[in-house]
């Protein structure tokens, strides 16, 4: 796979589902692109289609390679979707995380290594959201699809998540599509803004 800076990390051409599209857009290496739109416009459905969780048509290239040539499990590791309310399936946090990796990210988000022994049931919604981001980043994805990843966080933790995502994307030449309704956050994150509404997906004028 080529990692040429001029080549899109994610290249979406004519992607459509039963409810969304067709949409065309590209995410470049190191780019965080914001996505907004009214409720019900299809932001979550678009992210789900990109993660190949719902039936869809169209061409999607990851680092120039067609999605059809990548196994679905590998695709979802590489094009990683973080829903607004991430779920857990094991009893303890550590059973969802890689035993070796992730300690730096945990510290950056304000957790100690002992968090691995915590019971999932006792996590607050904010803790669940931050830990789910670590869980996702451990797969070293090329694209992050973030559906309101700071919706349950206080301002201090919101800043930590923003910094972690920015650092990850720039250090790894990855890209992120970030759904946010907070105008201040959208300013802080910077970069291009895409808007999805009843007429389709458009780039918002700067």
């Amino acid at each position: 796979m080529s990692r040429d800076a001029s080549e899109a990390v994610l290249d979406v051409r004519g992607l459509r589902t039963a409810h969304v599209g067709p949409v065309d857009f590209r995410l470049l290496p190191g780019e965080i692109c914001k996505l907004s739109g009214p409720s019900g416009a299809g932001k979550t459905l678009l992210l789900r289609a990109l993660a190949d969780l719902d039936p869809n048509q169209g061409t999607v290239l990851l680092d120039g390679e067609d999605r059809d040539r990548i196994t679905p499990t590998e695709w979802r590791r590489q094009v990683a979707y973080l829903p607004a309310e991430p779920l857990w399936w094991e009893e303890r946090v550590g059973l969802h995380l890689d035993a070796r990796a992730g300690d730096d990210m945990l510290r950056l988000l304000g957790f100690e290594a002992g968090v691995r022994d915590w019971e999932v049931e006792r996590l607050s919604s904010g803790e669940r959201q931050r830990l789910a981001l670590v869980r996702l980043l451990e797969n070293r994805p090329r694209v992050l699809l973030l559906d309101e990843p700071t919706a349950n966080l206080d301002p201090a933790n919101t800043r930590k998540v923003e910094r972690l995502v920015r650092d990850y994307v720039s250090e790894n030449g990855a890209a992120a599509l970030w759904v946010s309704h907070d105008p201040l956050q959208r300013q802080r994150v910077g970069g291009r803004s895409l808007v999805i509404d009843a007429t389709g997906l458009h780039e918002e004028a700067a």
Binding site: A51, L53, T73, E74, R76, R77, A80, Y81, L82, P83, P86, L87, W88, W89, H96, R135, L136, N139
Partner: peptide
């Protein structure tokens, strides 16, 4: 269904996601 999909999102196979 949301737990199954949470595992799929992590790159688990369909078999792993529904094993329990």
């Amino acid at each position: 269904r949301r737990v199954i999909e949470a595992r799929l999102m992590m790159g688990h196979s369909w078999g792993m996601s529904i094993s329990a």
